[in-house]
Design a protein around this nucleic acid. Structure first.
Length: 191
DNA sequence: CAGTGGATGCTCT
DNA sequence: GAGCATCCACTGT
């Protein structure tokens, strides 16, 4: 087994704009199922597009909790989205996990998704939560303990930057990060 | 390929 | 009651 550094709270207790690109290439497993993170977006506490911007509510409570924990919410009444809480407790900044390159548990992911094309198993925030079985039950859970397992990126990689997807407020901010050439992105990065 | 619209339900105003 | 950090099926080139 190659040695691997697990991501703990200290990793997330930094600016969300530093954490987000550092998550590209990291391994994310939930109950042993998952893959390599290839796309994320940063949402900071002064960001009108961020759920925590308007203050604490019952939905976004986990965003105001300690760093290194999950914030999971339901979007469009249909799909779950997984975030990693960053910066200090009470700051309400988080990284949205948008796409993985599947590496573990593909059969289970295919069954959960009801489809078989590897490229689309985890290509999008809703899709990857469906594939990994992430639901409201994971909201507020620590990321350095089961069912989560997060391993730091080992090698050096080239990280692409672009505008965030699917939002109307602060849509011009270049806070989307990813692996430019990956076939597992929710959408390609513009050249 | 690109573009459009429906599904579906929770949260906040 | 409006809006939503989405996805899929379907249309038309």
């Amino acid at each position: 087994m190659p040695k691997s550094r697990l991501l703990t709270r200290a990793f997330f207790d930094r600016s969300v704009h530093a954490v987000a690109p550092d998550l590209i290439g990291a391994a994310l497993l939930v109950d042993g199922v998952g893959g390599t993170i290839v796309e994320v977006e940063a949402y900071d506490h002064e960001d009108p597009a961020a759920h925590g911007f308007g203050g604490r509510t019952s939905r976004n409570a986990a965003m105001f909790g300690p760093p290194g924990h999950a914030y999971v919410y339901l979007i469009y009444g249909l799909y779950w989205c997984l975030n990693f809480v960053c910066e200090g407790e009470g700051v309400a900044s988080a990284v949205l996990i948008r796409a993985l390159a599947p590496t573990a548990g593909s059969a289970l992911m295919q069954a959960r998704r009801g489809m078989h094309e590897p490229r689309l198993l985890c290509a999008g925030p809703g899709r990857l939560c469906q594939a990994l079985g992430v639901t409201r039950a994971h909201d507020g859970l620590a990321l350095d303990a089961p069912p989560f397992r997060l391993q730091a990126r080992s090698g050096k990689i080239q990280i692409a930057v672009g505008r965030r997807i699917g939002i109307t407020k602060a849509a011009d901010k270049p806070w989307r990060y990813g692996v430019a050439g990956s076939p597992f992105l929710s959408r390609p990065f513009r050249a």
